[in-house]
Nucleic acid binder design. Sequence first.
DNA 1: TGTAACTCGAACGCCTCTGTTCGACTTCTG
DNA 2: CAGAAGTCGAACAGAGGCGTTCGAGTTACA
Lengths: 210, 210
Amino acid sequence: MASVTNRRGPAATESGAAGEPMPERRRADARRSIAAILDAALASLNRSPEVNIVEIARAAGVGRVTLYGHFPTKEALVDAVVAEAITRADRALDAIDLDAGSAPTALARLAASSWHILNQHRQLMVAGQRHLGPQRLRAHHDRVMHRVQEVIARGQEGGDIRTDLPTDWLVATYYALLHAAADEVNAGRLDERQAGEAVAATMTAALRPS
Amino acid sequence: MASVTNRRGPAATESGAAGEPMPERRRADARRSIAAILDAALASLNRSPEVNIVEIARAAGVGRVTLYGHFPTKEALVDAVVAEAITRADRALDAIDLDAGSAPTALARLAASSWHILNQHRQLMVAGQRHLGPQRLRAHHDRVMHRVQEVIARGQEGGDIRTDLPTDWLVATYYALLHAAADEVNAGRLDERQAGEAVAATMTAALRPS
DNA sequence: TGTAACTCGAACGCCTCTGTTCGACTTCTG
DNA sequence: CAGAAGTCGAACAGAGGCGTTCGAGTTACA
């Protein structure tokens, strides 16, 4: 009857710490495999969003069967990878104190850090779009997005950020500029240092109260 | 030996009017087929960028063999569709007098018109990215982009637009905001009227000289 | 009206990818 | 050390897509 494990993906899919047993004791080598797969998948998907499972398994130094033992479908794998990436980004961004200083300067600091992270995962987001659909990807993305939302809202209350446009639109502007900078750098039309300044300057101007 | 036509795609691929014979006399029904295929492909690709050839042929009311008679590969078809869309957009934008008024107001007018067109072809661009790659798509896109480039450059010379950032970056900003607005509308977080105002207001603020 | 151009459906060959099963082997862990 | 848990390659089954060929029928055009 074969001993395929796979009771459920390696957790990670659900973000909420709802009342789930969750531990799912696994053997050490299994945990090692899962970590290797997640890492390899992140790197591979990020290099080109259309990698097949064979490639990912090979990059992880693991047999295809083993991979399917832990992730029932490709979609589940991509979902786990995106969740993992978002979690890492979330942790990195936690180090930033967003309550210090004015909202615009806080945003600038946030942008400076976000930018690197976003740039590292840019292709991954394309893969996410392809394999999970826009809604699911958006759901993941929102776990990080909320910071921007909050800082902008604070700035609007304090009079540091324009209130003649919807908060959601200003958030969208923030991300649009971030993505644009990443694209420009990747296309070789801008270097990393210029990108940071350009984003900060443009963002400041765009969000300033009229 | 079958009488497949297909000497080359139905022109359109090459944009330059270099010294090519170009006419390629075709019979009336063939031209009708080509037009139907192009229309259907535009609509289909725009609805979902991963449509297969069968679907497109069916939507065009044409046999698959006929389609392959005019477009040797799927890539050639997508390329022709994108070229066609760009050409239409280009013609529509020709109606706008970009030399009248200040550069910022000219940009605002341009944005107001561009936005509808972009919104109609948004998914198509995803398909282009998938099937043609970023460079080829960019090459097409540049045929429209140059207007923005020129208006912004004019504004920078005249002192109406900030000069502390590279022109290319400001162009990127323009397009980023346009795309962001299209996405927000599509996601239902913004209605079309608000989108126009939001883009105009944000763009003006972002490009204004400090 | 005759002929060349065009269209059509059906079927084929080929390829790539996903996910599964099998049986044997290796590695944890108690 | 014994048994459970995990891993492996090979092979299979299924699905879907692309592009081609064939042969017969239809349509435009001179």
